[in-house]
């Protein structure tokens, strides 16, 4: 048990440190004391609280969401390569978001939540589509089948987005930047917009942590162990769609976070979902805060899209997991 306590301790320290660097490092160096010193320079405090802090918090939220969703999807599908991005769910969420912007949809009752709600709907429908189609192709839902289905759906949904962008011309120029994935210049509004869904979605997945452990042995086995498989599956899928949809709505498509983080967590601390889920959440936040820091400082003053950094780390990890799985015959 002490190993697990250490895991949480290390993860939380890393998160705090990354937040510290995230708010202080940049084109303007800001002393860390500005955080608590009320008599600090007003300009610096403004940058810290209104520009950097929301950015860091948003990056953390998005990273946490994508990582916990990845961990849950991998457990549910017994597929180590599953992640909101590889499954095409992020693309689905993007379509939902772009449709909202394209048609300037604003449902009065939802208000600022219109965008994340449509993203989530897009994510959820895409997920049902991908899983349904993969099952149709191959009842045993092999790892490769699911990933290929994800690629098919991603490509198709990507073309829909391109079409909509082409049709609108200038207006949605901003969408392109957004699509590449970024957490910059979003402000606290976006944090407020996404946070409730991320919390509800994460809780939905977390309450099914023991069921996820059972489902790793297959749905039949889980049922024999007393798991209400249909109900739990739906909870996890809805929870995963909520956090993914919310993350995409505020930051666009950022790939591979949900793949890299849970994999490293499992490698270090084992496959027990009671710990994989919360540890992925914390470390996902840390990873994306660090990636964002790197993306905006590495070739400063130019900012790289954050998706570039995550893909740079994530694609090799993806290749490594795939190689390992095929070599050991794990699937």
């Amino acid at each position: 048990m002490s190993k697990k306590i250490l895991a949480y301790f290390v993860s939380i320290i890393a998160l705090i440190v990354s937040i510290g660097f995230g708010v202080t490092v940049g084109t303007v160096a800001i002393p860390i004391s500005t955080l608590w010193n009320s008599s600090a320079d007003a300009g610096a405090a403004n940058i810290l609280w209104n520009i950097r802090m929301p950015r860091v918090v948003l990056a953390g939220m998005v990273g946490a969401s994508l990582a916990i969703a990845g961990a849950a999807f991998q457990g549910l599908l017994k597929n180590p390569l599953a992640d909101p991005y590889t499954l095409g769910i992020s693309s689905g969420a993007s379509v939902g978001a772009v449709i909202t912007l394209f048609f300037s949809i604003s449902i009065p009752f939802l208000g600022i939540f219109t965008l994340p709600v449509f993203s989530m709907l897009g994510a959820f429908l895409t997920m049902l589509g991908v899983i349904g189609f993969a099952k149709l192709v191959d009842r045993s839902m092999k790892m490769e089948t699911i990933i290929l289905t994800g690629i098919i759906f991603s490509s198709f949904l990507g073309s829909i987005i391109s079409l909509m962008i082409a049709l609108t011309g200038e207006e949605l120029r901003q969408i392109i930047g957004w699509l590449l994935g970024s957490v910059s210049m979003r402000g606290w509004d976006y944090v407020n917009m996404a946070l409730p869904f991320m919390i509800i979605g994460s809780i939905l997945m977390w309450v099914s942590r023991r069921e996820l452990n059972a489902m790793l042995f297959g749905e039949e086995r889980a049922k024999h162990l007393g798991v209400n498989v249909k109900q739990r599956k739906m909870m996890i899928l809805i929870g995963g769609s909520m956090v993914t949809g919310a993350a995409v709505a505020v930051s666009g498509t950022i790939g591979f976070v949900g793949l890299v983080v849970p994999h490293i967590v499992r490698l270090l601390w084992g496959a027990d979902h009671r710990h994989v889920l919360p540890l992925s959440l914390v470390n996902g936040a840390t990873l994306l805060i660090v990636c964002d820091l790197v993306s905006r400082t590495i070739i400063s003053p130019t900012e790289l899209p954050i998706g570039v950094i995550t893909a740079f780390i994530g694609a090799p990890v993806f290749a490594f997991i795939f190689f390992n799985q095929r070599r050991t015959g794990g699937m």
Binding site: N79, P80, L225, V227, D272, M331
Partner: peptide
């Protein structure tokens, strides 16, 4: 017997029997 993608430890696996 089936193959598994991720593996639990023996204790974790046996503990799942207490789920119900």
């Amino acid at each position: 017997l089936h193959a598994h993608a991720f593996t639990h430890s023996v204790r974790e696996t046996v503990s799942l029997g207490r789920y119900p």
